[in-house]
Design a protein around this nucleic acid. Structure first.
Length: 269
DNA sequence: ATCGGGACCTGCTTGC
DNA sequence: TGCAAGCAGGTCCCGA
């Protein structure tokens, strides 16, 4: 479900309910997520929430004793609920607040995570991450240098969180279409100029998706339950076999690795 | 060093 | 209508 725009939409939705409030306790119903829910989280009590930030697709809750990291994986979502609301089958974790509300993590596939670090922003999983798409220096020249000698498909390259964070399967396809780049083209065989366009395009696509509250697929909704509206702006994702909105040619759907990929064989080279 | 593939899960859609 | 296969937004880790 969540790519960067969905995570950022979630962050904006939950932050006003958390910041300035005190976390009273955590209730763990199912600790078996991608990694077991950290013991430190179970033992939390009476800690003011100093901030709710995002790094890549992690949500970071800054507390005085350390930092709680939440990842939504493929199917995770966060809602703010009245604390005694009966949990759904897949509601694995509640962070109970002094306001009588709780931040509730739901994740049917359990690819998500709830982790802990006593050193803010220094969890091992954060250390290997590349820059955010909006970080200064992420431009055509930067991509071009990073891609030197690489033969792998540019789609895989831009989805590699060690290179750049925040580009998942939906927005990789959308960005490559808008930039006119074939998803299977070798990363090392793209010019500075085209990478410059791609860098701008990735920021534009992600930015537009954040502005409209992300993409609603299946059951994604923001923290308040409102759907995201980027779905209406998807140009290639999920449209294999349908006509290209730019040239009319039939969009091709292929499988690259294990992931579906749709592109226009005429507009993307 | 770089890469491709498998693995982790459940639920919904599709096709026989 | 029932059942199985296929597919889904992420990403770590392994072996080649």
């Amino acid at each position: 479900m969540p790519e960067l725009p969905e995570v950022e939409t979630t962050r904006r939705g939950i932050a006003p309910w958390l910041e300035g409030r005190t976390l009273v306790c955590a209730r763990v119903r199912e600790p078996r997520l991608r990694w077991p829910i950290a013991d430190e989280i179970r033992q939390l009590g009476d800690e003011p929430v100093r901030g709710v930030r995002r790094r890549a697709k992690f949500l970071l809750l800054d507390l005085d004793s350390g930092q709680l990291l939440l990842h939504l994986g493929m199917s995770g979502s966060l809602r703010v609920v009245v604390a005694d609301t009966p949990p759904d089958k897949h509601d694995h974790l509640d962070l109970v607040l002094d306001s009588g509300r709780a931040l509730r993590l739901r994740d049917p596939r359990r690819f998500g995570a709830a982790l802990w670090t006593s050193e803010p922003d220094r969890h091992p999983l954060l250390d290997k991450l590349g820059p955010e798409p909006w970080d200064p220096g992420v431009d055509g020249e930067w991509f071009y240098r990073k891609a030197r000698g690489r033969r792998r498909a540019v789609k895989d390259f831009i989805m590699d969180a060690g290179i750049l964070v925040g580009v998942g399967n939906i927005y990789a396809q959308e960005s490559l279409f808008r930039a006119g780049i074939h998803p299977a083209r070798a990363a090392g065989r793209i010019s500075r100029k085209r990478y410059g366009l791609l860098a701008d395009t990735i920021r534009a696509v992600l930015g537009e998706a954040i502005e409209v509250g992300g993409t609603t697929l299946r059951d994604f909704a923001g923290a308040g339950g409102a759907p995201g509206y980027f779905r209406q702006q998807l140009t290639v994702y999920g449209r294999g076999g349908e006509p290209c909105r730019s040239c009319g040619r039939t969009l091709r759907a292929v499988r690259h690795g294990q992931r579906g990929t749709v592109y226009c064989p005429r507009c993307q080279r």
